[in-house]
Structure formats: structure tokens, C-alpha cells
Nucleic acid binder design. Sequence first.
DNA 1: TCGCATACAGAAAAGGTTTTCCCTTTGATG
DNA 2: CATCAAAGGGAAAACCTTTTCTGTATGCGA
Lengths: 334, 334
Amino acid sequence: MAPPRPATITDVAARAGVSIATASKALNGRGQVRAETRQRVFQAAEELSFQPNGLARSLLSGQTRTVGLLTSDSVGRFGIPVLLGAEDAFGAGKMAVLLCDARGDVIREQHHIRTLLTRRVDGLIVVGESTDARPSISRDVTVPVVYAYAPSDDPGDVSFVPDDVDGAAQAVRHLLTLGRRRIAHVTGPTHYQAARDRAAGVAAALEEAGLPLSGGQVLYGAWSQRWGRQAADVLLRADPETDAVVCGSDQIAAGLVEAARERGRRVPEDLAVIGYDNWEVLSTETRPPLTTMDMNLEALGRTAAQHLFAAIDGRATPGVHRMPCRLIIRDSTV
Amino acid sequence: MAPPRPATITDVAARAGVSIATASKALNGRGQVRAETRQRVFQAAEELSFQPNGLARSLLSGQTRTVGLLTSDSVGRFGIPVLLGAEDAFGAGKMAVLLCDARGDVIREQHHIRTLLTRRVDGLIVVGESTDARPSISRDVTVPVVYAYAPSDDPGDVSFVPDDVDGAAQAVRHLLTLGRRRIAHVTGPTHYQAARDRAAGVAAALEEAGLPLSGGQVLYGAWSQRWGRQAADVLLRADPETDAVVCGSDQIAAGLVEAARERGRRVPEDLAVIGYDNWEVLSTETRPPLTTMDMNLEALGRTAAQHLFAAIDGRATPGVHRMPCRLIIRDSTV
DNA sequence: TCGCATACAGAAAAGGTTTTCCCTTTGATG
DNA sequence: CATCAAAGGGAAAACCTTTTCTGTATGCGA
């Protein structure tokens, strides 16, 4: 029942008839070891299915090859791709990710930070749920930290966020290219940085083209399908000539497309619609599938991880880095 | 720049003017230590912001208080809640979760298992994307393993899966209670265990009530909204008198509700619809919001974690444990 | 034959903590 | 004052690995 204590290098050395120093050198390819001896050691290790004890190794080297990933909300829709990207970057080498979810609770976050430090992680990635700036933890911590999706409020920290201003502007420019001229914007609550940034991007691109915003103002609401449906009504009443809408999320876009369809507007012929997030369960299943802005979160996570490596090596790159978004063209624009 | 080497217990002992043995005892509340001495030690630790080195501690105790969480697909829709539940159960104590994503690649999985073993995790949770049985890894591993969502193909292992047969039966019984008598079933591909289980549950509950399946047969298709829409057409043509549908997923249900609505059927008055998964982005945003079967995945994850604890303590509970599902009643049934 | 270089192997220390065992001190009791 | 017990504190081992330094043997050239 109790599994036999895993073999140590001492066991291997004994079985191979050499000292532990020699066994270590043989297994790690260090120093001068005769080929025949090395062979014996390898065979002994094999027979005992020896796995070197990472703890002992880390204790000696001072590096655990582990990073903590701290999410401040429950690992949500945005956290996952970042996490995957990070795991990807690490997996290439031999880093591992220790996952902690603070569920938006500050004292739980502090607790997690302490235990991560006790475990001697080499660095920390902090990922947020929204793009709103969050308190820096870098003061409390003795290892490098990078922030992903939600930037730190300390500009001296290293943060990676999607470039929402540019993303929204790209969306508008795409519509302009298609000949649309009466472009509206429906998005989430104003208290989200993401909503404000995207609205700013839309405004900038329209101004660039010398066009007004159709409907006269940004329609702020919730990040929901329901709001998308309502907004369709509001919009088609306020400016029936609207020929395109940039939405602040795929949820909003899905609702808007559905409602527009019911009101007899053809998408994309009468009304072109662009979503945001490329949340595939929505964006590929609407009728028609949505053209949408992908924030490349997985790439963002990967980049964050790579920069954490750099920071661990003492080459930090402070500042808020804005990562480009990419337009995914489907059938809701033409 | 280089942070000062973190303080060790030796530093604390020196500063408090005691031996490291005494310092250790004072900090951990072991042995006999005068109150005044303990006080001095605590103060020294505070001043040096001493954090005990978990590596050294683990090396000595042989317990890392860490478990590996191995997902075979990318941490998907099902993995997340399980992960959260597990983290929850662990977080209560002081366990940590080391996350590894094998992306469905067997050799990558093997690699991850090796590194987890090298890191001396105390146990492993394996979570799958579907409820189809997956190969056991327990042979390759020296620590306890529990399987969540996807069971192991070895019945001697410890697995936790949702009870889909019972869940689907519950759904049917709910419809029967409401007076529905012509109940159909639309679900995913037959090669999914989940689809077959749910169909079996529907069949059992109908047989119990002495009723035939409306439409004459289970409609197997894809797990998509698109299929839900198609199925609505097929179904309403095959048996226009159908007054209720149990769907194999919320995606299917969302498509079906939408199409039924367009064909002039009122939901729930003319047609009651039940979804499966309680994937809230869909189930709360359809018109009307969906009655659906929640698999309690977070509870499942929590339970799996608790049983992993038990297994680590030598009290394993082999077998495939089927966890109950819970009907969430919204407005698509009445 | 001696000296020397080279190739190989082993001893020991280091990393930080906990725990066991032993020693010293203090106070009390006879 | 002598003896004893209890309380408090310290030395050292153990966990497992890597690396440096030292030592030994072998072969070669002089």
C-alpha cells in the first residue's frame, strides 16, 4: 500500500558501485566519467526508476523554476487564454505554474502571495479580469512581477494589456474601407476602462475620416446580449440610416444582430456589425457569424511570460505595453 | 537591484541571540521556550521579514503540500469549474495547485507527469474535457491520483463524473410534472458518452411513465447552436405535436429556442425546452432564459480534491463516483 | 626507474529547516 | 547544604542533490 520510498541518488550510486558524486556527474553529464561507469550508473537509475528530487536541487541552486500565477478574480474568460499562453512559453523550457485564485479578495491575495513566497517561486504573473488598473503588489514581494490584462497602477511595473484604442480604431477603419459612413458604437458600462478606451478608438478613427458618430453618442450599457438587443432598438430609432455598428463585446453584438434581424434589417447588407473579444461560442454561432476583434490574449500571456523570464534574469522592461489586436473577418461585415 | 538574500532562520536566531533550534521551536510553538525568549525570536523574525523556506521544510518532511492538476485538453469549459472547486478545497488548508496542460498530446502528458513527480507533488488530479473514459496514468505514478469529469478506464482508480443518466431523467420528470406528454430529445454526436448517457436517461424516464419518445428517435447531431436550429425544423416536421424538448446542451437548446420562436412556436407555452450544462452566457441570455441541468462541476472538483486528500492519507475510495446534477428552473419550462 | 600529466573517482560541504537527544541552569524540597 | 526535578536551550543529524577539491592510479616520456 505505502509506496516504497522513491529511490535517491545514494541508492543509485550503491547499486552502480560508485560514489554519489560520480553518480551525479554521470547522470548530469558533468566532469570526467568513464563511458563504462556512466553506463552502469544509467542502468542502475533505470532499474530503480530514479527521479531526482527537485526540492533538493532547488534548495541548492536557489532556483525553483516555478512561477506563481495570481488571478484576482476567478480565472475567468480572460484569465484562461493568458494562462494558456504563459504555460506555453514556460512549457517550452521547464518552468511550472503555481495557480492561485484570490477571488477578488484582497486579504486572500495577500495570503497567496505569502505562500508563493514561502515556496520560493522565481517570479509572479498577476492577471486581472478587466483592463482597469489594479494595485501594485511589487512592493510586498521580493521576486519579479509582471501584470497581464489588468495593468499595475505603478508605471514602474511591467504590464501587458490589449491595445483597445487601436483595436476599436481598426474596426472603424475596416468599415470605412467597406464604404460604410454612418457608424455607431454600442458598448459596456462607462466605469470600465475597456469601454472608454474602445469608445476613444472609435472616436479617433471617425475624426480621422471627418465623420460624425451615427446616433450622436456612444451607447453605454451592460456587457450583455440583452443590452445588445435593446441598443438595436434605441439605435434604429435614433438614426434609422445607420449602416454599421462597432460593438464593445461579442455578447452585445450577438444581441444586436439578433434584434436587427427581427426588425427586418439584413446583416451585413443593411447593417454591418463588428464584435469584440472573438469569444467563439458567440461569434461563430450568430447568424451571420461575427466579424470581431481578437485581443490575442494567448499571445499576450506568452509575451508576459517571456518578459517575466527576462525580469528574472535582471532584464526588466518597465511600463505598460499595449499589445495589438487582430480583426477576424467573418460574415457580419461586407 | 539584486534583492538582499532572504533571511534564514540562522539570521533570526543570531539576531535574537539564541540557537537555531530554539528559534525554530519558538516560531513553530514546539517544545519548551520561555515566553520572553519566544517574544525576542518573533521580533527578530519580524524585523528581518523572515519567511521560512518551504523547500527545506518539504525536503525534510517529505510532503510538499502541492498537487498537480493535469488537463488533457486545453483547460476548457469543463476544466475551469473543476479547477476552481479543487483550488477551493485546497485553499482552505494550505495546499497549492501546480497546473499542467497537455493539450491532448500523450507525450506531452508523459513529460508533465515526470516533471510533477520530480517536483514531488503529493497527489494528482486528472481532468478531462468529455465524460468519455480516458487511459489511466496510475501505473506510471507513485502518488495518489483522482480523475475528474473524464473517468479513468481502470475501475480500480478513483473517478468523479456527473451522473448524466440521472440528470437527463430528472429533466424528463420535471416536464412530466408540468403535464407535458410528447417529449423529444436532441443531443450531440453518438460517439460522446455524454450524449449516449443523456439519451439513456431520457429513455428510462419515459419508459417509467409509459410514454414514447416524441419524434420516434433521439436526434443526434453536433453540440452547436446551428444543430439546435436544424433540429427544430426536423422535429417540428416529424412530430408537430411535440410539446417539450430535452436538449443535450445549452448550445443546442439556444439554437432550438431561437428557431422555434421564428417558426411561431411560443416557448414555453407551446414548447417547453430544457438545456444542459447551465453555461450561463447562453442559458441566461436566450429568450426566454433556459431551464437547464447544472452538473455542479465546482462541487465535483471540490469533492475530487477532498478525496485526493483522503487518498494521500491512505484512505482511497476506488470506483467511478457519479455526482448528482441539479435542475435550474428558469422560464423555458412551465 | 623516476617524475609527471592525465583521467577518473570519492569525500565533504553547502543549501535551510525540523526534531531528537542531551546538557545546563534554576528552583524547590528535605 | 545537598539532592532532585523540571524547564529551557543547544548540538547535531536528517532530508537529497550538486560541486569543488583532493586523492589515486595509470600511462608516458625522459
